[in-house]
């Protein structure tokens, strides 16, 4: 169903006279915070962006609002008064439960995609493709035999969509064969240029990856997504290291990324 944020009805609140609008929106549950009162505050990613809502008694098992589980693809009906911080969810329809995301080999990467999508879309105008990409990534993690490859490819692709992925096709200094990822500039450098700007091998700001790894990184960022997933990098630990340092510099502290064992 397209996200039309369709207004199903509007009317005056019986107590205050303020206008109340009921809307329906597709969403992915990025975060879910259960409250002791039995309510659930959810951070949702829709084609229009990230938003927060509260589901009253959402912790009760078996109820309509219990479908608001982490990573679920849902269609929610909600309403919000003009001065409310949080929308109030009244109905949830489940479009896809991804049980495979609870597997220990997929779970950390699902958290990574969700947290990355959340931090990349805070107070930012959101490209509708972000929603599609995260939905696709979560389904990939659910179904694919190699969730790590899916997580790595989609994490770099999310950064690319947010406009912060590196351009590593050639040395940004001389146009030569690159060997280092110059993290602050999001560019690649050859060994000579990296040394010239103060970067030694594995120094703080210039990370040595080598020609092959940089080509793999370019494929992760810019190549066809299916190919990036089906032909993952050979030395994945090196790519996770690069991703972790790149994200720390350009995005900030992403706990799910720091918690990854690799």
């Amino acid at each position: 169903m397209p996200d039309a944020a369709a207004s199903r009805g509007a009317g005056a609140d019986g107590y205050t006279g303020r206008v109340r609008r009921t809307q329906v929106r597709d969403a992915l549950v990025l975060r879910r915070s259960p409250l002791p009162s039995g309510d659930v505050v959810a951070t949702l990613l829709s084609p229009t962006g990230t938003w927060r809502a509260i589901a009253r008694k959402g912790r009760l098992p078996g109820g309509n609002l219990a479908r608001l589980s982490l990573f679920h693809d849902v269609t929610v009906q909600f309403w919000r008064r003009n001065d409310d911080d949080l929308a109030l969810i009244t109905q949830v329809q489940l479009n896809g439960a991804l049980a495979g995301l609870a597997r220990p080999e997929a779970y950390p990467y699902a958290h990574l995609l969700a947290e990355l999508a959340d931090v990349l879309t805070v107070e930012q105008p959101v490209d509708e493709r972000c929603y599609t990409l995260v939905a696709s990534g979560l389904r990939g993690l659910h179904a694919h035999a190699d969730p790590e490859a899916v997580g790595l490819a989609y994490a770099w692709r999310l950064l690319a969509l947010a406009g912060v992925a590196p351009d590593v096709r050639a040395c940004a200094g001389c146009g030569g064969e690159p060997s280092h990822l110059w993290i602050p500039a999001g560019q690649a450098r050859c060994a000579a240029c990296a040394a010239g700007v103060g970067g030694d091998r594995d120094a703080d700001e210039a990370l040595f990856l080598g020609r092959e790894a940089l080509a793999e990184l370019d494929a992760l960022v810019r190549g066809p997504l299916a190919s990036a997933v089906h032909h993952p990098p050979v030395d994945r630990a090196r790519h996770w290291r690069a991703l972790r340092r790149f994200v720390r510099w350009h995005v900030g502290h992403v706990r799910a990324l720091e918690a990854l064992p690799c």
Partner: peptide, 12 residues
């Protein structure tokens, strides 16, 4: 719990 988080913890 039978949430995704509870399920993942149980599997682990």
């Amino acid at each position: 719990s039978t949430t995704v988080e509870g399920e993942a913890t149980a599997m682990y």
